[in-house]
Design a protein around this nucleic acid. Structure first.
Lengths: 152, 152
DNA sequence: TTTCATGTAACTTTATATGTTACATGATGA
DNA sequence: TCATCATGTAACATATAAAGTTACATGAAA
């Protein structure tokens, strides 16, 4: 399975936006992320629907953060993306008649469910504000070396 | 991402094999799994290399279990498959120069790593023998209803 | 009314699991 | 020896989903 990097991507966008007032055009954000404006709009669409960000058309338009960063967790952002699958593995058949497969599914599901629950719990523990705080620390550390946030 | 069902599949095969002496041809196993013999050979190849199963060519050939089912865990089987990715999500860039992305990766990696570790730990707690025991219970329960393991 | 920016559909590209065909290799049995 | 059976494996086909791209409609600002 090709890995899904939308959560990673949208967090990157939000964190960039949190560094300065905005608004930011999809074009600008796409350049910073080294991708395409349409990809930005796509991953931001879910966040707009829930109200975490706003978008405006026309001159001076673009994307703006519209939520309290200390109230929104990574899990909330994940949900805004539509709760895409977390695990790369799954059962061959979901409701098999074969008892052998039922036994296999039962064992695997226990492990899978536990792992999913833990992942969601961990994502729920981190707010966007905490991410921003961590970033500020990293920026401070690098400043002492005279470097910008965008060396790459 | 399309989900990987090889672990589910290979466990199904092993559990089927554990029910009777064997050997079993890929053809037979493929029919029971409703798939192709080559698929069976493919998912069994790793297990053969490690020595969990043996395969023989020619008349009377096929696959045989060659390990102590109470000593091999689902995690061992997973490893025999070559440790395929567990999570459907990942970071956009693995070693980014951008500090924003580094901060995002750090936060996500913590959650991802925890979830992976838990999943592997859970898989490590279940042996093939335990799976077989669970299956026997299910077979017993169904026998009281006069049904076979292959109703589907 | 021109320009800018988003919204979105449609298509292409890429990655990966799964399914299939074809054939080589080697073991068994007549 | 030789026909048959079964695995081993390469090569190709199909399916699914993410990511990238193009094209154009919509609507806001200058």
């Amino acid at each position: 399975m090709k890995q899904d990097s939308r959560l990673s991507g949208v967090l990157h966008v939000l964190l960039h936006m949190a560094q300065q007032p905005g608004p930011f055009t999809s074009e600008t954000l796409a350049r910073a992320m080294d991708t395409n404006p349409v990809v930005i709009r796509r991953i931001m669409a879910g966040l707009r629907e829930i109200g975490y960000v706003r978008s405006e058309k026309g001159h001076g338009g673009g994307w703006t953060i519209a939520c309290d960063l200390s109230k929104v967790t990574l899990r909330d952002i994940y949900a805004a993306l539509g709760n895409p699958p977390l695990l790369a593995m799954g059962n061959r058949t979901e409701s098999p008649g074969c008892l052998v497969e039922q036994a296999v599914n039962a064992a695997l599901d226990q492990a899978f469910d536990d792992a999913e629950a833990l992942l969601l719990a961990r994502l729920g523990e981190v707010t966007l504000a905490m991410l921003g705080e961590d970033l500020r620390k990293r920026l401070g550390a690098r400043k002492h070396q005279g470097m910008s946030a965008h060396r790459a």
